[in-house]
């Protein structure tokens, strides 16, 4: 492997200048837990690494109606942040399922999303939370819904020279009435790529579902929102029957493939089970 050149800028403007000047061979280096593995096996051969660990993208701050999370926040940081744990429990639960302690201390939420694995745990939670990604380049800033940012396996809307700076996650108007969950099934309890994961953010007021946002991981080219299942429960009181019907609708919208980890049929059943579990929990709470 030709050794890449390495930069460790101190400011985001410096990082952006390097990224735009170096062209397509330049990769931002976040926690390294995915990039270094891909480089080692030769799937990725960047000519330049821009280490973005010292440019201040590691803060979490509430802005009133949203929470802004820097792209370089690690899983451990998310798990230790009171605002995330209290108001974005789906994201905290997802972060707790990424690798083991060593990986959680290194892996960043921005990296997890930019790798665009269909099985990425925090990306799944962020889709259900309707996060916006905030992108910056030397030319300026733009923001996109995360659902538009994630294009396919390993593919995002990130333009050359552009850096994912932060996520802006809207808070629900009355988060006390909202139920959030993230559940995944893998081959074992820790250190495992999801066979299927489901994140849910459901708000119930006066017994009626005001909002239900579901995200399905590892059953499509990117994280999917099962719109028919969401529409079925919207405006309705939850019953066991409805939870079952909506779960079946979500499973029908999943687009799982057969691979070495599981069959598509098994994944489809997992979608139904996990969606039903989320809705039943909402019903009880």
């Amino acid at each position: 492997m030709n050794e890449p050149r390495y930069y460790r800028p101190k400011k985001i403007t410096e990082a952006l200048t390097i990224l735009s000047g170096e062209g397509a061979g330049a990769r931002p280096l976040g926690g390294g837990t995915d990039l270094l593995v891909r480089m080692r096996v030769g799937h990725m051969k960047p000519s330049v690494l821009v280490d973005i660990g010292r440019i201040g993208l590691d803060t979490i701050h509430p802005t009133g109606d949203a929470v802004v999370i820097g792209a370089m926040c690690t899983m451990t940081q998310l798990l230790g942040d009171a605002v995330v744990v209290r108001q974005l429990p789906a994201l905290a639960q997802a972060a707790s399922k990424v690798g083991a302690a060593q990986i959680q201390n290194m892996a960043t939420v921005g990296g997890n999303v930019c790798n665009a694995s269909p099985a990425a745990d925090t990306a799944c939670a962020l889709v259900a939370l309707e996060a916006r990604v905030m992108l910056r380049s030397v030319g300026g800033v733009r923001s996109l819904p995360i659902g538009e940012f994630l294009r396919g396996p390993g593919t995002t809307a990130l333009a050359p020279g552009e850096l994912l700076e932060a996520f802006s996650i809207p808070l629900l108007p009355d988060d006390t009435a909202a139920h959030q969950s993230f559940n995944k099934v893998g081959g074992r309890n820790a250190l495992v790529c999801s066979l299927t994961a489901v994140a849910g953010v459901t708000q119930i007021t006066d017994g009626v579902v005001q909002q239900c946002r579901l995200a399905l991981a590892a059953v499509g080219p990117t994280c999917l929102r099962p719109s028919r299942a969401e529409a079925l429960v919207h405006g309705e009181p939850l019953t066991e029957e409805l939870c079952r019907t909506a779960a079946a609708a979500a499973a029908a919208q999943a687009q799982p493939i057969d691979d070495h980890r599981a069959t598509g049929e098994y994944r489809r059943r997992l979608v139904a089970a996990l969606v039903r579990e989320h809705l039943l929990e909402c019903m009880k709470s």
Partner: peptide, 18 residues
């Protein structure tokens, strides 16, 4: 596994520069 600033990390996935 080694500790960096007290936290366990995988030293096979961290470059020296970081």
């Amino acid at each position: 596994t080694v500790l960096v600033d007290g936290a366990p990390i995988c030293s096979c996935l961290m470059v020296l520069g970081s």
